[in-house]
Nucleic acid binder design. Structure first.
Ligand SMILES: [Zn+2]
Ligand SMILES: [Zn+2]
Ligand SMILES: [Zn+2]
Ligand SMILES: [Zn+2]
Lengths: 136, 136
DNA sequence: CTGTGCGGGTTATAGTATTACATAACGCCT
DNA sequence: AGGCGTTATGTAATACTATAACCCGCACAG
């Protein structure tokens, strides 16, 4: 059960990804754990965290730090660096391309002698739906 | 004890800021709490969190989400939006200007109808000192 | 004075994440 | 097929981070 890139997409990992995909938005590790354990997988936090770490590590999901949560990648398979737009009302998470932002950031940081490896870019605000339904 | 902008810089708050300034880098809320309580302030988490919230709210400190920690602002008093360069070895935190990045991000998000309010831009990597001392 | 608001103290509890260890499954080589 | 090293899964226990709820006292306005 090893794919072309050497990834082991085991049952827990696959199910975890499915759970993320079923939801438009982000889920906390413990919510995921509930669903996993309901499906017959383990009941302890490491079960969820390990699967999530794997997915994040391999570009199939992203960690949303502001929410202490995880979301399925919306452009999996492509090398990309993402930024996230998080709605403060409904918690919806949109993923937008951040390759350009990242390049700028690398340039700025290089000027200070910093060797940049990973970026995490998140923004908080209102999604179109919530702007619509929550006027002045 | 109210400053020009209506800020109440009380003893706990001032001391909290001093504690952050004493350290080059970020401190967790509980580390700060230890020091505060050693100085005769309260011993319970809300003491630290409230002071930190105040400092962050008023632009005197920043929250570093990747570290679950806080750092004194390196350009206080100026309206600014910052990005943070976090060393994964020594946890040093450098603050760089992100106004331009933010503008780009606002433009991208506006294209999707998202109303962006706050940004959090963090990068992980190696600081100059650690590059020096930890070669191949 | 005296009511009101804010800050700060407390207890308790909620929520998030990791360490450590034991067992099972897999990939690979003979 | 059999054996072995590696990776994955499961468990218990614990560490770490953050918030809720309540009370009191002081500063200040009236
Ligand atoms: Zn993605
Ligand atoms: Zn929304
Ligand atoms: Zn700053
Ligand atoms: Zn460093």
């Amino acid at each position: 059960m090893i794919d072309a890139r050497g990834l082991r997409m085991t049952p827990v990992r696959r199910r975890t990804l499915e759970i993320l995909l079923e939801r438009h938005g982000a889920l906390g590790a413990y919510e995921i754990l509930e669903r996993l354990s309901a499906d017959g997988f383990g009941h302890q936090p490491p079960v969820a965290y390990r699967a999530l770490d794997f997915l994040v590590e391999n570009g199939l999901a992203h960690r949303i730090r502001r929410l202490n949560a995880f979301a399925a990648c919306q452009h999996p398979g492509q090398e990309h660096h993402a930024a996230f737009l998080i709605c403060r009302l409904c918690n919806a998470v949109a993923e937008i391309a951040a390759d350009k932002l990242r390049a700028t950031l690398i340039a700025s940081s290089a000027a200070t002698g910093f060797d940049l490896e990973r970026t995490s870019i998140e923004a908080l605000g209102l999604c179109p739906a919530c702007i619509e339904s929550a006027p002045a």
